[in-house]
């Protein structure tokens, strides 16, 4: 019969060594809210599970030079309780707060949400919009990777054997900037995004948008940026014409599938609707 071993290394080097030298399939465990479900259903059959939570510093949030460092294994409930992060990046915080229920929140992490590589992962569009970078450690050292470069397709990431994410960096937010995340689900919780939209933007003193970044989830094999949508609202005060252009731009980048969670047509339309709504929220939060 099959066997499964478990280990909880206490340093980055030890973890990298175990992962790089593992025979068969090695799986990193953060909160386990995806991994355990997949183990149980038989969707994944790892030979070894490497729990990162004993690595010093991997859980917790630090403020560095006005920006934020979020340890990869930090439970989302801890993220939601961080006042400074909530003030600076309300969109990232609300996105991570949408994952699962109270019970799931106590375990689930940004790293797990990202590396599970589901197109529908809630925190990912918000992190991409907020220009988050992942600090990846591995046999060849450490590198900083923009979050949008981690996921390469459903269930696939750009991480090489032996690599894992140690932490995320969120830059110091520009003055008068904020962000927002909205998702659509057919009920009010405990569901998977049919569409998710993260918007981050900056306004000037007159309320004119000077910078914007928009990312969509669940409308393509990976999260997608909407550069034309950003261009459409930069220079505007988010008037109806700008919103209509944003709506169209969001719809234009969609490449969804029809599945049990929604049709192509519905997903595309909702992407436009949510892009408008999320931008409106972020704009208000930024003081526009």
């Amino acid at each position: 019969m099959s066997s499964l071993s478990y280990t909880a290394p206490t340093s980055v080097n030890e973890a990298v060594g175990i992962l790089a030298g593992a025979q068969g399939l090695a799986k990193i465990l953060s909160g386990g809210t995806d991994l355990l479900v997949q183990l149980r259903s038989g969707r994944t059959k790892p030979d070894i599970i490497v729990d990162t939570k004993k690595i010093p510093g991997i859980m917790g949030i630090r403020e560095v030079d006005g920006g934020f460092v979020i340890g990869a294994a930090t439970p989302c409930s801890v993220i939601g309780e961080h006042a400074g992060l909530s003030a600076a990046y309300p969109g990232v915080v609300e996105a991570s707060g949408l994952i699962g229920s109270t019970q799931v929140q106590g375990r689930c992490t940004l790293a797990g949400n990202l590396c599970n590589a589901s197109p529908a992962a809630d925190s990912v569009p918000a992190m991409i919009a907020a220009r988050a970078t992942a600090i990846v450690v591995g046999p060849s050292g450490q590198r900083a990777v923009p979050v949008e470069q981690i996921v390469t397709g459903p269930g696939r990431t750009s991480l090489a054997k032996g690599e894992f994410i140690l932490e995320f960096h969120l830059p110091k937010p520009a003055p008068h900037s904020s962000d927002a995340y909205l998702r659509f689900i057919p009920r009010t919780e405990m569901d998977i995004a049919v569409v998710g939209v993260g918007v981050s933007l900056t306004v000037d003193a007159a309320g004119v948008i000077t910078d914007a970044r928009i990312a969509l989830g669940a409308v393509a094999p990976t999260q997608v940026l909407v550069p034309d949508g950003a261009a459409a609202i930069i220079g505007s005060k988010l008037d109806d014409a700008a919103l209509a252009k944003l709506d169209a731009a969001a719809r234009a980048v969609c490449n969804p599938i029809t599945d049990k969670r929604g049709t192509i047509d519905f997903r595309i339309k909702i992407a436009g609707v949510l892009a408008r709504r999320a931008a409106t929220i972020a704009y208000k939060r930024a003081g526009g």
Binding site: R187, T188, R261
Partner: peptide
């Protein structure tokens, strides 16, 4: 229960 949606 994820995709057979009874009300929560």
């Amino acid at each position: 229960f994820l995709d057979y949606r009874v009300p929560v």
